[in-house]
Amino acid sequence: MIKVQNLTKIFQSGSHKFTAVDHLNFQTQAGEVYGLLGPNGAGKTTTLRMILGLLKPTSGEALIDGISVNDQPEEVKKRIGLVSASAGLYQWLTPREIIIFFANVYGIPDEVSQERLAKIGSLLDINEFLDQRCSTLSTGQKQRVNLVRALIHDPPIMLLDEPTRGLDIAGTHIIFEYIAHLKELGKAVIVCTHRLDEAEKLCNRLGLLHKGKLCHEGTFEELKKETGCQSLSEIFIRYLPELQLSRP
């Protein structure tokens, strides 16, 4: 469903170069949650942005259902829902207006979008503030609205970039519950998160990204076996500094 092939991004300004993503390769299938994990600046967000076509790769490509994002970015965009921690909302509009607007942009008929809004809205518990100005919402409420907005066109693929950043325990729980639900619905999900405990439980496979390179990939059990660590936190603490030192 998602196939990333030799994806590379080099940022350049004058004679300066910085390799943010370095020949990345991985795949994700329908009904699978792929956890893209790594420290800050590892290249997770840049990877997601390239998969969605927001950033042009320096080389390599991402294929969504066999469609290259480089060739047909708009076809790819139709198939993906993006939730990013940095995504904001239009403060003068209400959640309902924003969600219906995006449904319209993705070509969803009004009656279908209303129906979906009612259904997902109930699941994510946003109905009580649907007609309130977004400027009055809390961080958790805004993030849930963002999730509904990303799901309104029922995309087969979801890209979630730090979807629980800034949320409290309850807010985080709701989001991860819903990601599990998405898995059941048969969607392919790539999630970047620092909530390693949740990632352990939720992700079918994990990819450890460091300085733009995929260092390790596999199920949590495979990673444990490979590193000898018992948790992802342990792997991060022990393993990644070692990796940094071993880099040429």
């Binding site: 969605l52 927001l54 708009e74 076809e75 965009k77 139709k78 993906i80 993006l82 990013s84 940095s86 995504a87 904001g88 909302l89 239009y90 403060q91 995006f102 942009v105 993705y106 963002n146 907005r149």
Partner: peptide, 12 residues
């Protein structure tokens, strides 16, 4: 306000 990315991510 962080809405540009969402807008650009839409197929328009």
């Amino acid at each position: 306000r962080g809405t540009m990315e969402t807008l650009i991510a839409a197929p328009i």
